[in-house]
Amino acid sequence: MSDKMRKRLLDVIPPTVTIILFFLIWEVGCLVFGVDEFVLPRPSVAVETYFRWQSAIWPNALQTLYTTLVGFGLAIVMGVALGALIGYSELLYKALYPLLIGFNSIPKAALVPVFVIWFGVGTMPAILIAFLIAFFPIAVNVGTGIATVEPEMQDVLRSLGGSRFDMFRKIGFPRAMPYFFASLKVAVTLSFVGSVIAELGASNRGIGNMMVIASSRFEVPLVFAGLLVVAAMGVALYAAFALLERRMVRWAYRGQN
C-alpha cells in the first residue's frame, strides 16, 4: 500500500467509525431500554420512514436548499463588499463595527415574525434570515484579512510608490481570500440553519415546515427523518465549500496536503 493511500484511509476511517458507532449506540440504546418510538425513534426506523416519504421530503428539501443558496449568495456579495470597506478604511471600520455587532447580536429567530409582517409567510423570510445570519462572519473575515497585512509586505509596495488602492488590490484582497473561503464553509451551514429556522416559524414549504407539520401530527419518525436529511444537507454544503476552499487558495495550505 502506498503512503498516499494509507494517508487517505487514515483520513476516512476514523470519522466513518465514529458515525457508525453513534448510530449503533442510538439503535441499541433504544432497543435495550425499550424507548418508545413516539419519544425517540431508532435510526433504522427514521431511515425507513425516509424511504417511505421520500417523494414528500425531497421537494421540501430542495425548497430549503433554494432559500439557503439565494440568501447565502446575497450574503457573499454584501459580506465581501462590506468586508472590503471596513478592511480598507479604519474610519469606516470604527464607524460601522458597533452597528454590525448590534445587528449580529439579535437572535435571528426573533426577526422571523417581523419578516412575516413585511413579506408574508413563504420563501422571502427564509431567504432573508439565511442572508442575515451568514453575512456577518463573511464581512468580518474579509475585513480582517485585508486589515492585517504585514507591515513588511506594505513596505514592498510602498517602496515602489504604490497607492493605498494598489495595496488593497495587489495585496490586501488576495491575502484576504483564505479568510474569505474559511468563512464560507462556516457561513453556508449558518445560512442553512437560518433557512430552516425561518421555515419552522413561518412557511408553507421547506423541510422545516415539513417537520413542524409532522410533529403536530405526532409522526415523530418523520420528524427524525427530516432531521437526518437536514444534517446530511448541512454536511454536504460544508464539504462542498471546504473543497472549494482547498481548490481556490491552495497556497494557504502549503505542506498540509
Binding site: E150, E152, M153, D155, V156, R158, S159, L160, G161, G162, K170, I171, P174, R175, M177, V249, W251, A252, R254
Partner: peptide, 19 residues
C-alpha cells in the same frame, strides 16, 4: 519627498506574495 520610482528594495526576508 516620498517613495521613489527609480528605487528597488530587497529585505532580510524575501517577502514574496504567496499567492
Amino acid at each position: 519627498k516620498g517613495p521613489q520610482k527609480n528605487v528597488g528594495m530587497a529585505f532580510q526576508n524575501p517577502i514574496l506574495l504567496p499567492w
